[in-house]
Nucleic acid binder design. Structure first.
Lengths: 203, 203
DNA sequence: GTTAGCATGTAAGGAGTTACATGATTTT
DNA sequence: AAAATCATGTAACTCCTTACATGCTAAC
């Protein structure tokens, strides 16, 4: 029983908003969108797709193109179901711990355009308070160990602290923008209606 | 067969350089040293310790303190063997992929003081070239998708790029220092002789 | 006609986590 | 004597990767 869920599931549902695809292109599209944050292998993608079908979030249409018609192994085209869209909206709005992790946040953020302003604000603020905790941790470590640790550990902690501080400033800007305008930074259209983002395109 | 290796193994061997300890304090010390980069649970620590014993990198001494002498479950004190020290030196010098990962790098860096200058330089440069690849990835993504993606994805990529650039600058400084002095930033004593770093202390 | 790349999958394993079980020792 | 916390472990599960197996189709 190889259960599957989490970040890959989320990404698949997110990508499928662009329209029906079969596994192969889905993975490419996925790795293109998530860019440098995460990459998935077929070994996890295909089993994940099956799970999502079983759960009812997506449906498979065995390719109806003329080329298929024989008894051959036709390509399977996956599309989002209504339930899947709904489920995705729940996931986007979710503020569970995984969202605050580094990985999880990158992926979540990649589909931010599909959440509404209130959700976005909540997620951004959640992430920020997580980072603030980390900052405290760094600062505590820095004062605690300043004398009895070698220069490298110190350097690492300093660099870590500065990175986190930078990200907090970034989040502050985003939160500010979000508060003022609600919808300036992006074309905001939550999960209904025609796609707010890219459709599969020639690359 | 629950195999174990990698970053936890590395951390355990690193920490045990400070002196013999039993599992409980080892984990605390570990999470203290690795601070905000990584935390381990007992569920992975204890099995890992057994593996390390089986491999001969560490040895267990059933606590010889007077309190134990009865038939009770005495606390097990782990100490590094000579083989273990040797193995750790190999691991520190290792430039395998996991070292360039974010997680792996933080942990590796935390024990940098136990590697020699040449090794340190190699690792720092390896990390840097990894980051440079990532930078290229970000830049490519930024130009590729500038028009057909919503503002959030763009923001994310920009922030990501800047973070990586910052880290590259940081690495450059470290590499520079390392090249000039070899041993200014830290009290450098590679894996022999008495400990270069902290001994178990009251906290 | 054979390499390259499209397309789908499975089996085994890796590196951990959570939740649970248990018992010893110290503090209040 | 009850509560906290020290101390050691196991079982089940998570979520993904690698390596493998397979077959189709387009390009050279």
């Amino acid at each position: 029983m190889v259960k599957r869920s989490g970040v890959l599931e989320f990404a698949v549902l997110g990508i499928l908003h662009e329209g029906p695809m079969h596994g192969y292109v889905l993975r490419k599209r996925c790795n293109a969108v998530l860019g440098s944050f995460r990459a998935f292998s077929y070994g996890s993608l295909y089993p994940c797709l099956k799970q999502l079908v079983a759960a009812g979030w997506i449906a498979e249409d065995t390719d109806a193109s003329p080329a298929a018609a024989a008894g051959k192994r036709s390509r399977i085209v996956y599309r989002l179901t209504a339930d899947g869209k709904e489920h995705f909206q729940e996931l986007v709005a979710e503020s569970g711990p995984s969202t605050w992790e580094d990985d999880g946040f990158g992926v979540h953020f990649a589909f931010f355009g599909r959440a509404d302003t209130a959700t976005r604000l909540r997620i951004l603020e959640g992430r920020r308070s997580r980072l603030e905790e980390r900052m405290d941790g760094f600062r505590a470590a820095l004062t605690r160990t300043r004398e009895r640790v070698d220069g490298y550990t110190l350097e690492l902690q300093r660099h870590g602290l500065e990175s986190v501080e930078r990200e907090v400033r970034w989040l502050n800007e985003l939160i500010e923008t979000e508060r003022q305008t609600g919808t300036t930074a992006a074309r905001t259209t939550a999960g209904d209606g025609p796609d707010p983002s890219v459709h599969t395109s020639t690359t």
